[in-house]
């Protein structure tokens, strides 16, 4: 009989233990088991990017990762982006540039953007649009999002 599995992982720098069934996605575990509802569910099939988290150094769609795969891994979610001192520059830029309306896509965009700018601090607009092609937004039309990313990039490089 498939049972419940004990998983030990690290989320936003904190050692974290949880119990889950092998069929549960990492997204389900984050939201329903751990109560970390910052990571959003849009499509549940890998297309929308609302559930983006950093998994062992790469952005992935957490709806297409099993919770049990988190064993021994390092995960960063939207809850790990801001610091006690305040918002991350990417978050601040999204606010200042009005890069969100309903907000459901925003955590995914912010996690993906932060990963891009850490890896490629000089990404140009084309690269930004390409990198974010796996994040869908039904509200903004993307332009304000791209402007926010360029703004965050300028501030981070200042």
């Amino acid at each position: 009989m498939p049972g419940v599995v004990h998983v030990q992982t690290t989320i936003n720098g904190n050692p974290t233990d949880f119990l889950c069934e092998p069929r549960q996605s990492l997204l389900e575990v984050l939201r329903d088991v751990l109560g970390m509802t910052g990571t959003k569910e849009g499509c549940n099939d890998g297309n929308c990017g609302a559930c983006t988290v950093v998994f062992d150094g790469r952005i992935v769609t957490s709806c297409l990762v099993l919770g049990v795969e988190a064993q021994g891994k390092e995960i960063t979610t939207i809850e790990g982006v801001a610091s006690p001192e305040g918002l991350h520059p990417v978050q601040q830029a999204f606010l200042e540039n009005a890069a969100l309306q309903c907000g459901i896509c925003t955590p995914g965009f912010i996690v993906a953007t932060k990963a891009l700018l850490e890896q490629e601090p000089d990404a140009d607009e084309g690269r930004i649009r390409h990198w974010l092609a796996g994040n869908l937004c039904r509200c903004t039309g993307y332009d304000k999002i791209v402007r926010a990313v360029l703004d965050a990039e300028t501030k981070l490089n200042a």
């Binding site: 890998g46 990017g49 992935v60």
Partner: peptide, 9 residues
């Protein structure tokens, strides 16, 4: 193939 997220996996 897919997006940056998909290419991570």
């Amino acid at each position: 193939i897919g997006s940056i997220q998909i290419q991570g996996r």
